[in-house]
Design a protein around this nucleic acid. Sequence first.
DNA 1: GCCGTTTTCGGCCCGACTGTTTTCAGTCG
Length: 572
Amino acid sequence: MKNEQVAGALRDIGFLTEVEDGPNAQFKSRAYYRAADAVEGLDEDVSAVYEKGGIDALLEIPGVGKAIAAKIEEHVKTGKIRYHEELRAKLPIDTAQLRIEGIGPKTLKAIYAKLKVTNLAELEAAAREGRLKTVPGISAKKEQDIIKRIEFAKKGGGRHIIGEVWPMIKQIESRLKGLPGVADASVAGSVRRMKETIGDVDFLAASSDPEKVMDFFTSMPEVAEVKGRGSAKAFVRLRGGIDADLLVVPENSWGSALQYFTGSKEHGVELRRIAIAKGLRLNEWGVFEGERQVAGRTEQDVYRALGLAWMPPEIRENAGEIELAAKGALPELIKYGSLKGDLQVHSNNTDGTATIEEMALAAKEFGLGYIALTDHTKSLAMAGGLDGEELLEQANRIWELNDRLEGVQVLASAEVNIMKDGSLDIENNVLDRLDIVGAAIHSNFNLPAEEQTARLVHAAENPAVDIIFHPTGRLINRREGYPVDIAKLVETAKDTGTALEIDAHYNRLDLKDEYAWLAVKSGVKLVIDSDAHHPLHYAFLQFGIGQARRGWATESDVLNTLPADRLLKAIK
DNA sequence: GCCGTTTTCGGCCCGACTGTTTTCAGTCG
């Protein structure tokens, strides 16, 4: 897809025009940012859009007018935009690298004008040598602050994986809820939207005594540093290096504040536009007609005042949800807790930590009616993978176990290895005797996309394979995942009736949200599995459901919302 | 630079917090 490159160039232009003089510079800049977002969010490749419909088709993209359409055309044809090059000649800074918190375009321009700083290394050197404070508007204190921020950014101050910070966040949330004088409290932001990674954590509380709540918040044991505090907001850095904000509002602003603090930014911007069109004003304190608050107590009230149905946080990305909410045509997303079984579970026969029976009983305890026992197969020697004979022996033991188990059933299954050529490391005559079969790639990650895709397609075409597990192989923040033409895989899954997995382990979340969306849109069935290697791992399922919701999946899109008997009929 | 339930011109999301050039610009979410 060329979309990311085009969007990147447009966003860079947005950044570089933000510092231009003239009364309209900021609006021009904003127009480029908007167009960049729109191009990035396209379902289709922007170059394909152009090839098919020319400039007119580009003009159909919201936020793209004549001038930007011409620049997109230029990028599609030549790979660059002259206007972009001109701006870069004037201010040749590495904008991607110099996105340091607290330093915006204006400051960067001033720094460049005085010190000719163009990248992060030069910025750090200038700060450490004390030259930065010679730039107008930068004090010695700010210079020290910038050094700290660069250090933070360098030691992976990036985004945190949701599952890793979840327990601490939920604990803080629950403490805030229980605080005397607090009517309600909630985590908001990207955590509430169930994004796979979290930049910072936003907490919200409703109270008539904000000072007391902020005192509590800033003195929690998890707080490493208090970064700021006003009359309604406090900013802290938690131990482990994650930033957290707290906003305290009165009860009659709870809904509007929750909406505002949940985001996404783009969703909020669109809502405020709608408010203006209706002669209203929307902010964190409520919906206002003149000075009069007309909504704000609940999120439902806020959306209703704008003529919209309430939207689940997971889909608040301004990606079409607002238009559907205006028509009352939102899909009913799959609910948390609606899974009846888990189709990827490991035992200590390979790399799990508990017996099959222990995993089954833990599943029952968790509220599941069945699990598929999917131990690894022989070519994954590292995990002590099973061969065909061992798999069948295990299957027999599972079926015997089922006679003793009450209220939970174990399906004999396997996580079969997909070999380099797309074949499997277990014969079909063995796999055909199992209840259900998942297949996955665990080797040869660096094949070219075409070969990798062909490999997955071949596996999906195998009649014995019911599910492709963790289809892209990524590990969030650690490994990209192998290159795969996901559209092609989705198409094959559709044609062959193969299900695609959302592996709910928070390190994987694979399929990720946008790929899940593509699968749902194409009518491909999903399954959501914990990939449990321990009885406590069933708790991961909520993160998988979160991704599925972000992909607009309904209950009928996800096979393991069915009871076992119906599931086994529904697979291929 | 974009765009139209007020509009083809004149608007463009909104408020909190920080630091400081002490009245507001810059930045953030």
